[in-house]
Amino acid sequence: MLRYAAFTDDPSGGNPAGIVLDAADASAAEMLAVAAQVGYAETAFVVSPLHERRVGLRYFSPHAEVPFCGHATVATAVLLGERHGAGTFTFDTPVGAVELTTADGRASFTSVDPLVTELPAADVDELLDLLGLRHDDLDELHPPRLAAAGNPHPVLVVRDRARFDGFTVDPLAARRVLDAHGWPATITVVHRREPLVFEARNVFPVGTITEDPATGSAAAAFGGYLRALGLVEVPARVTIHQGRHVGRPGLLIVDVPAEGGIVVTGSAVPIG
């Protein structure tokens, strides 16, 4: 068991991930139990030996298996780069093959092709009620959507910085909403600081965690959201700050090409 913080150069920042390098013989129940014991948002399990810089990866939160986890992917890639040399890797994940490049303690992954769909009005109402927000708190230039680049994330963009900073959430109520909709990851709430600079808060109630410090899959989904709605001129590079609200600030760099998967880049460092 190894522990890395992703999307940061500081072990006390970013999003901590567990990494198990030899889980080929572990059952899903065993991996879930380990993830619950670790207590991080996700733990990555290498389920096939490294062969020609390719491995199989599965992800578990303390609550359930997660189809894809960006911060644990970045952390695992940085670790493998340290042990086997910088360069490219391929991770076979439950959502498909994910290509990565590593260098100097950083890793970039290319997501699967994103999918962005309408978020039904009833779902928007439910999310706003959960967060204690109103319709007029939303940025009219960034409408609510369901965006997926591995995991589906409902996306809400809040116009006012104070309202973005001030919302709170009941974790039990949030878990009921996520489970009822079959959303395995986070509720993504974003505030636009500048045209290509955003701050995100990702509601993710698992174990003792209510809010995820840095969410790579949500960053990829948000990149797909921006492209699908024509909100950036592609190719574009977007910066996302996350984790300030839970005392673990991190930084995610999102490259949005004209087509195909979204590229998410971040650093990772060992914890302890």
Rank of each mutant, 00 (worst) to 15 (best):
Asp123Ile: 01
Thr102Asn: 07
Asp129Val: 13
Leu156Trp: 07
Ala268Ile: 02
Gly13Cys: 10
Val189Asp: 00
Ala162Val: 12
Arg134Ile: 00
Ala64Met: 12
Ala185Gln: 14
Val74Leu: 05
Val169Trp: 03
Glu52His: 13
His71Gly: 09
Val74Cys: 03
Ala214Asn: 00
Pro11Tyr: 06
Arg227Asp: 03
Gly250Trp: 06
Thr101Leu: 04
Asp92Val: 15
His245Arg: 15
Asp113Met: 03
Leu80Ser: 11
Asp92Phe: 00
Gln37Trp: 05
Ala33Phe: 02
Ala17Asn: 06
Arg244Leu: 13
Ala28Val: 00
Gly266Lys: 07
Phe7Pro: 03
Val74Arg: 01
Ser12His: 11
Thr168Leu: 12
Ser61Asp: 09
Val124Trp: 05
Ala218Lys: 11
Pro249Ala: 06
Tyr225Glu: 09
Pro154Thr: 06
Ala41Trp: 02
Val157Thr: 15
Ala17Met: 03
Pro249Leu: 05
Val124Met: 09
Asp139Cys: 04
Val238Asp: 04
Leu141Glu: 15
Gly230Ser: 10
Arg161Ser: 06
Met31Arg: 14
Arg58Cys: 06
Thr90Ala: 14
Asp25Asn: 12
Leu178Asn: 00
Val254Gly: 04
Ala44Phe: 01
Val246Met: 01
Arg3Val: 13
Ala97Phe: 00
Leu226Thr: 10
Ile209Cys: 09
Val95Asp: 10
Ala214Thr: 04
Gly182Arg: 10
Gly70Val: 08
Ile240His: 08
Thr101Tyr: 01
His135Leu: 14
Gly250Ala: 12
Val20Ser: 02
His71Trp: 10
Asp165Met: 08
Leu119Asn: 11
Pro184Glu: 11
Asp129Ile: 03
Pro49Ser: 12
Ala148Arg: 12
Ala29Tyr: 00
Ala17Thr: 04
Leu100Ile: 13
Leu138Asn: 12
Leu32Tyr: 02
Pro152Asp: 07
Val157Glu: 02
Val177Trp: 15
Pro213Ile: 11
Ala218Pro: 11
Thr186Arg: 01
Leu146Lys: 07
His135Met: 12
Phe198Met: 01
Asp104Ala: 15
Leu57Gly: 01
Leu32Arg: 08
Tyr225Met: 07
Ala72Asn: 06
Arg248Met: 06
Phe7Thr: 06
Pro49Asn: 08
Val177Ile: 08
Asn202Leu: 02
Thr188Glu: 13
Ala162Gln: 14
Pro270Leu: 12
Gly250Thr: 09
Asp136Gln: 11
Asp255Ser: 13
Gly247Lys: 07
Ala214Phe: 02
Glu126Leu: 14
Val116Thr: 13
Ala41His: 01
Ala41Met: 04
Pro205Gly: 09
His135Cys: 05
Asp137Ser: 10
Gly13Gln: 08
Leu251Thr: 14
Gly207Val: 07
Phe45Cys: 03
Val190Trp: 02
Asp113Glu: 15
Thr90Gly: 00
Asp179His: 10
Glu140Leu: 14
Leu178Ser: 05
Leu131Met: 13
Asp22Ser: 13
Asp170His: 11
Ala97Arg: 15
Glu52Phe: 00
Val157Ala: 12
Ala72Arg: 05
Ala23Glu: 04
Leu251Tyr: 03
His191Glu: 04
Ser48Met: 04
Arg145Lys: 14
